[in-house]
Design a protein around this nucleic acid. Structure first.
Lengths: 342, 342
DNA sequence: TTGAAAGCGCTAACAG
DNA sequence: CTGTTAGCGCTTTCAA
């Protein structure tokens, strides 16, 4: 295995000291243009890149950011990760991805792992940051970490000195409200799924009830069914139960795209048509929503912008710049064919 | 920001030299059990972890493996990544994920990036390793890299001194063949999608024709339509075209799960039922296949084992152990409801 | 067994 | 503007 060349080699070949080479590498001080040119030529010739370990060791900086997601198979996370990757790359940062499966113990282990890897910042997406009520032990852990490494939370955690980026839930329900207002046919609005343990679901539910009130629509408890599962099976169970036990809703607001897919299956099994008999609307606008038949009308985000915001905030934190305590991501309504027109 | 404690601190507190501490850290030499115990206690007390950068610098080893996938949103890759992550963790390795979007130029850049990050090995999944005919410039690039860092290829590349892990395509078609043999009703078998530029698709097609011959079934060129796209849209286009232009097939073998979802949409738009009028079968068995209605019968893999194999092979390469030139992953048929019974 | 000392490759004062 | 020097935190000879 060829021993890679070092700053010493290139200093020797250029006939200068290693500090001079280091200076052109970092741009930390002025260097005689001619020498600089010569050095750059040699650097190019050998395709030399300074050893990141040596550099990291001395600067206590690795230019890598750790990202902890719940499950990268979930298109919401993978899409977000991808845009973060893009943004990080543009700014000269690497990402190190870890998946917790929302297991608190695993989150602990992975956060430690990222810490030991000397990442410059940690971004927490999903898992404990989705909890309606913050686990105090977890918060304490994060508090300790924060003393050494900036932590950025996507979601929410109570009483932590970490900046937060979150989706504007209020706006989401507002979009839905306007949509309903434009459709006289929606009278019985169901809210299917969303865990009572998850903050986002709680908040959404709260706004949902307020919305019904504002629209002068009846709140029917049987049409408001939380569920801890966010998968297809969860959607099926909730919807099947709702259609068996209650009056048929006109419009179902489903916890997310995958959940909606299960709900749609149940609707069909009850011999109801989508959207003729029941309209359905969901959250996230992942590519899944286009795979469905009919394609889902859903609340989505500009993932590209979302990722940019996350990474630029994290980098600002690394560079000890001021960042807003909370940044809200604006949702938008994407209309497809799962809701009856007017 | 609290300065993290170092080996010097703990040596001081234990009243020994740093070499002794290093020895208990690495287990590289015998240490007086009493001293060792004392040192370990102090390590534990401070939750000390040796600086990975310093260690990496001296050992030229980072314990991180780079993984280059085409697009982590694709459930095939994300599922595989997850099992790799698990396997790597068990063996004390970290993963660094990069996505190329199958863009050759981007692959180059990312491979370089991983190289500069001093990863111990690079795993290539998708992108150029899927090409039917190997890009020579790309191969040359990999050849250069291999001199410094072990490269493991998931897929295929011609004339490279890298070990390969691949799915057993022959076995896949064999599974399908047996399935068809058990169903008298399948006479007209279509092969929808799969790019002519992709080796896997070429190989599969080749076996598909052989299979028809062996089953004494007619090969109908109009039912054999390659397509470069592997997404939903591609499936829709191919299937719509097939149903418009040719006789109706009994069974459609679709390029993958997502492609199948598009194909199903087209089938429905032609007022045909699945599986009563047309059966459909696909590849990969990602969670997508359970989201469809009806759920897809599909050829899947034991992703868990797949990931284990990838990581353990990579680690063997890092440790300069012998590894097989080619490892085949055995597929299995998962029967759901998208194919007519008997 | 153990400690002293020499680096790994690089950056950052500090003089000049 | 440039070279010398002292580390970053750790592993690993080399003697003792």
């Amino acid at each position: 295995m060829k021993q890679s060349i070092t700053i010493v080699d290139i200093a020797k070949e250029a006939g200068v000291s290693i500090s001079t080479v280091s200076r052109v590498l970092t741009g930390s001080a002025k260097v005689n243009p001619e020498k600089a040119a010569k050095i750059n030529a040699i650097i190019k010739k050998y395709d030399f890149h300074p050893n990141v370990l040596a550099r990291g060791l001395i600067q206590t900086k690795t230019s890598t950011i750790g990202i902890l997601t719940a499950d990268i198979r979930n298109p919401y996370y993978s899409t977000l990760f991808l845009s973060c990757e893009q943004a990080a790359e543009e700014q000269g940062y690497n990402l190190m991805l870890c998946n917790s499966f929302s297991d608190r113990l695993r989150e602990f282990v992975l956060i430690d792992k990222l810490t030991h890897q000397k990442v410059d910042a940690i971004i927490l997406i999903g898992g404990a940051t989705d909890d309606a009520v913050t686990d105090q032990e977890y918060a304490e852990k994060i508090r300790t970490i924060t003393k050494n490494i900036p932590v950025l939370i996507i979601g929410h955690m109570d009483g932590l000195p970490c900046p937060v980026i979150n989706i504007d839930y209020k706006k989401e329900i507002e979009l839905i409200k306007n949509f309903i207002a434009e459709h006289n046919s929606f009278k019985k609005i169901a809210f299917a799924g969303g865990s009572t343990k998850v903050r986002q679901a709680r908040t959404l539910r709260e706004y949902y009830r307020k919305m019904l009130e504002e629209l002068n629509l009846e709140y029917i408890p049987e049409l408001d069914i939380p569920n801890d599962r966010y998968d297809e099976e969860g959607g099926y169970i909730v919807m099947d139960h709702m259609l068996s036990e209650s009056e048929k809703p006109d419009l179902v607001i489903a916890a997310n795209d995958i959940f909606a897919s299960g709900a749609m299956k149940a609707i069909r099994e009850h011999n109801l048509r989508i959207p003729e008999d029941i309209s359905i609307l969901s959250f996230d606008d992942t590519y899944i929503s286009n795979l469905m038949e009919p394609p889902l009308t859903t609340i989505g985000y500009n993932f590209w912008h979302f990722g940019q915001t996350i990474i630029s905030t994290a980098i600002k934190m690394i560079e000890k710049e001021e960042v807003p305590e909370e940044t809200l991501i604006t949702p938008k309504l994407i209309i497809r064919r799962s809701c009856k027109e007017q």
